[in-house]
């Protein structure tokens, strides 16, 4: 599916972050972050808590205004854009916390992922392929789903919008291994369709199983990055990530 010529053809940088600096109030959480991401590629951002991973996604989505640096999505500068405008540029964001509307039904949550309700009907197939059980729970209130099912709903909502870019924040947290494997399959399928995925993870195993490249965030800076090359990489990374 991916060979050298295809990779050259799809060399357009879907996400391009340069010298990004941002934070809340006086302090800086992110200092001098730069990276690129192409279509059909999964980049795993690793690092311990509090090092800026979530802030990175929030800055890209426009919830935190960068203090300096730039963000480009498909060549378009979105550094100071509003979140709702960015969200409509075929980008799906799954936050780590408060990611679904617990008071709304599964169906209503999914509807919010697409522009019009008729589109959802057409794309229900996507949901069924990803997670068949979700289609049985359409009129259930999202808050009554189990933790794992809520994460699945989150991913379904992202999938159903058929984005070109996905920003995923620790979606495997607290999930059973079988579900994690299912999610890995879904993300691999998305990648094969050309989606660029930025994956925030603390679960090194999960990241290893699907990501092409990695970058380790420490106190707001990327201290190490590269391609995943088998179990050696894993050993090298462990020392950065252990408690």
């Amino acid at each position: 599916m991916r060979n050298g010529t295809e990779r050259e053809a799809v060399s357009e940088q879907i996400i391009s972050v340069a010298r990004l600096r941002s934070g809340y109030g006086g302090g800086d959480i992110l200092r001098d972050i730069s990276f690129d991401l192409s279509a059909g590629e999964i980049l795993a951002i690793l690092g311990k808590n509090g090092m800026g991973k979530s802030t990175l996604l929030k800055t890209i989505m426009g919830f935190v205004k960068p203090k300096s640096g730039s963000i480009k999505l498909r060549g378009v500068d979105v550094t100071n854009a509003e979140p709702h405008w960015i969200a409509r540029r075929s980008i799906a964001y799954t936050p780590q916390e408060f990611a679904i509307f617990r008071e709304l039904t599964v169906e209503e949550n999914l509807r919010l992922g697409v522009e019009s309700d008729s589109l959802l009907k057409q794309r229900l197939g996507d949901v069924r392929d990803a997670f068949p059980r979700m289609t049985e729970r359409m009129s259930q209130r999202a808050g009554t789903l189990s933790g794992g099912e809520q994460k699945m709903l989150l991913l379904c909502r992202a999938i159903v919008s058929r984005p070109d870019i996905m920003l995923i924040d620790e979606i495997s947290e607290g999930l059973q291994p079988t579900m994690i494997e299912r999610m890995a399959e879904i993300l691999r399928t998305a990648r094969s369709k050309g989606v660029a995925i930025l994956l925030i993870e603390q679960n090194l195993n999960f990241a290893l199983s699907i990501a092409d490249r990695f970058a380790i965030l420490k106190i707001g800076e990327i201290v190490e990055s590269g391609r995943f090359e088998g179990r050696d990489t894993a050993g090298k990374l462990e020392k950065h990530l252990r408690i």
């Binding site: 311990k48 495997s172 947290e173 291994p177 603390q202 679960n203 090194l204 195993n205 999960f206 290893l208 179990r231 894993a234 050993g235 462990e238 990530l241 252990r242 408690i243």
Partner: peptide, 14 residues
Amino acid sequence: LVKSVYSGHAAEVA
């Protein structure tokens, strides 16, 4: 125990 709490299944690697 602490490792598994923190890094998911990282303890299983290596």
